[in-house]
Write a protein that binds this DNA or RNA. Structure first.
Lengths: 340, 340
DNA sequence: CCAGCCGATGTTTACGTAAACATTCGCTCA
DNA sequence: TGAGCGAATGTTTACGTAAACATCGGCTGG
């Protein structure tokens, strides 16, 4: 590797300088109580003097644990994933755990399998998986048996510990809000078919309409992108009976707003629009977007709690934890003009 | 920890089953050439049978390297940071390196110092720092001497290896574009004062105007958020002489668009607006935003290249690598009405 | 006053791997 | 034909830490 590779300072070095045994250094390093004050001071002084740092590899080898959690996901380009990851990182750090990121380039079973195989050799005590679960069907068998798993964005509560936003409740709130304003029914733009979150939102939208005895328009399918929302919005703008649109995320809602604007239909005068996520920019859309707020920080927090609890107990858990959502009403929704 | 903690399969176990020494297992595991075919097969078979996985802690301890890069940053909520991180993760994975994420909750020297101290004990061979460099002045001394550093979003090229977007060139392109359209001068909304990227963009904006012999309006200060852009936009909307605005990022430009819309000033009819970043949503703003495209993927790639090169050579490098930008002209800019 | 106990510290050992060195054996070439 | 070489594999050792066990005193209580 290098010529400048003078061996790192080890406990033995500190011990020699402090005139104690390396075991005493170990005890000081770990805050063990049975070291007397003066000795402790000597050791700490020697540590400072030499710039000693514990070697985490040796520590991990000895203790059999890495104090590290792996996070495996496809992309960080979606707000949700980044925010969740950030929350995970923060909470893990607070618990003294490090985060190792395992990116999966393409969402195929093969590449997921590859990621899990790498993971098997990686120094992690637990894994948080942020992806649709059918993709990891073949994969989890390749995990070392003692690695604990928590899954986000999935309905695999029967097999894993799952944490997720309460998609159904959020979508229900969105539809109910629009119906209560007086809209006859609510159109819907879904996310990509593979997405669990998307199909859950679609299902809840459908149920809410059916429960209210309303017609269920054929949903249009997007891919989370603003551009796909724009395309769907253009089609909906053609139909004068469409007065209320629920887009499965804020980005697609942004595209819808632009499509309606381009077609000369006013929001919320002619058409009301609701999104999902409550990204920071949503309040600056034209007009400011009514949307379902997701608490990504809480999702991340519960993920970390979940893995740590499983690591601690040494056995996997099952079941789903849902994080509540909250409808944020801004200016993109109103009573329909015809009904007024 | 747990009752189910039956020791992991080690080389010794594989060796026993295959009827060879553990050293031979090691050689097979590392693809060493001097193992004969039949022996290799036996070992591989035993590995499969037992589900053997190398213990990365032991491996790291023995080899003195972790094949891991630490990434330290404040927040993932900015598009730029997430995208850069994603690119870093992908390229690191391609090189067989893992990524450890070190989040810093608040941008104070103290917490940065804390992060670096933790980092010092962490199993990393190199570090990529995504933050303004003055914050780590006190910090780097706490790093073990053999840990290599690459910095993003900073001008510390004299002390570290720095990779960054060519902020100056991008801002220059934005201003030049507006002047060439016939605008008398260009207003500017900056990012937060602590941001290196922001001050670099502001500086280049000023220089471009001065070079063209134009008046330099007093810039307004934002904080990257759409809301701060909205506030600044409201003020600029009051001034009829303001026909061209360069916002230091797309989110603030979004706020500006809404402010102008709210005040009845048309874009680009009355006022032209340019942003910076080219976030995916920018093409769906109303109107689609002309903006400076940043190649975050390339920034991430060069960061990884940089650390790996330093790790390989075993010595730090200096100097700055700039990643070019590109102006993406959409519909938010036009020749000013008065000049037409 | 001394047995015994406990607090403070030292010694030994093991974690899993891989480099360095040792051994074995078949084959080549003088 | 046997010295010598090299390929294949085995043995020893060290990486840095921390658990387990060992030791050494001084203090307490009967």
């Amino acid at each position: 590797m290098s010529q400048s590779k003078q061996r790192r300072i080890s406990m033995a070095d500190v011990a020699r300088l402090a005139g104690v045994s390396s075991q005493t250094v170990s005890r000081v390093s770990n805050g063990h109580p049975s070291v007397i004050g003066t000795t402790r001071e000597q050791v700490l002084k020697a540590m400072r003097e030499l710039g000693y740092r514990p070697n985490s590899a040796a520590r991990a080898l000895k203790r059999g644990e890495f104090r590290t959690i792996g996070v495996i996901l496809f992309t960080l380009s979606s707000t949700g994933n980044s925010r969740t990851l950030e929350a995970i990182a923060n909470h893990a750090a607070a618990e003294g755990y490090a985060i190792t990121l395992i990116p999966v380039a393409v969402p195929t079973q093969d590449s997921v399998l590859g990621a899990f195989t790498r993971l098997g050799e990686l120094a992690v005590d637990g894994v948080i998986v942020i992806m649709e679960v059918h993709l990891l069907d073949a994969a989890t068998v390749t995990l070392p048996p003692h690695v604990q798993v928590v899954v986000v964005d999935s309905d695999a509560g029967d097999r894993y510990s799952v944490v997720d936003t309460d998609q159904a409740d959020g979508a229900g709130q969105a539809v109910t809000h629009l119906l209560e304003l007086g809209h006859e029914t609510v159109w819907h733009i879904t996310g990509p078919r593979e997405s669990f979150a998307s199909s859950r939102r679609e299902q809840a939208w459908r149920q809410a309409l059916e429960a209210a005895g309303r017609a269920v328009p054929t949903p249009l399918h997007g891919d989370w992108s603003a551009e796909s929302g724009y395309q769907a919005g253009l089609m909906m703008a053609e139909d004068p009976s469409c007065t209320a649109i629920f887009a499965a995320n804020d980005q697609m809602a942004l595209g819808v707003l632009r499509a309606l604007h381009d077609r000369g239909r006013s929001v919320p005068g002619d058409v009301s629009v609701v999104g999902f996520d409550d990204i920071p920019d949503a309040s600056s859309f034209i007009p400011p977007l009514t949307t379902v707020h997701q608490d990504f920080a809480e999702v991340g927090r519960r993920c970390v709690q979940g893995v740590l609890r499983q690591i601690d107990r040494g056995e996997p858990e099952h079941g789903t934890t849902l994080v509540p959502t909250r409808l944020v009403v801004r200016e993109s929704t109103a009573t329909p003009r015809v009904a007024a």
